[in-house]
Amino acid sequence: PPQTPVRTAMNTIQQLQMILNTADDKPSNTLEAYFHNCTVNPTNGITNRVEYLGQRFRENFAQAVGEGWVEIGSQRYKLGVRLYYRVMESMLKSEEERLSVHNFSKLLNDATFHGSLLACAVEVVMTTYGTTWSITLTSDIQTETDLSFPWILRVFDIKAYEFYKVIESFIKAEPNLTREMIKHMERCEHRIMECIAWQTDSPLFDILRQQREQEDQPDQPEPTST
């Protein structure tokens, strides 16, 4: 029988809790082994970034919905970090199998990759628990604060074009995402493709420019990325 919106939301929360209740707040032994295999060990960069972005998240969350909700924001972020490590490990296992590579130094030292992956994980958590908050400013005025996508991009200072790159791999790496969550991520993709990636400060324009310059020089090797 078709589900009510409330039942659907409850299922999504239960599914996320099932995945994350036993997940690590810190990199697992498997993940640490991948870090150790890197030419440059990325551990400090990763943990420092998680700490820094956590501060930014809590500040922006409190600013958006009020200081009284800071603890809720902290819990959301903590769950996002667990999902981030879990998906990172799953992605690395897939890449290891696909490429027969064990040293992921370049990827794991890429700040943009980590920022985008963490933003994606936090977006999943935020969407699961709902992102519209009604706050009362005075007894007569009530306003809604929208923390839905692309709010997280502003908080983490991530370009939509870079965030877009992790979405499909994220979905492949976490098979326990509900249908509703996958549809939400797909809507994020469409919004990026149709609008946000074309905003003035997008890296997409530099890439298009570089592609055009390479096409104008026929002796240049064909770029590996398209």
């Binding site: 370049k106 990827l107 790159k165 499909e168 791999s169 996958i182 590996t224």
Partner: peptide, 21 residues
């Protein structure tokens, strides 16, 4: 996954997307 459109080809993954291949 049935409703999601997977755009990456067989030989493509996160490493290629971040120029780490």
């Amino acid at each position: 996954f049935q409703d999601y459109h997977f755009g990456l080809d067989e030989g493509e993954g996160i490493s290629e997307l971040f120029d780490c291949d």
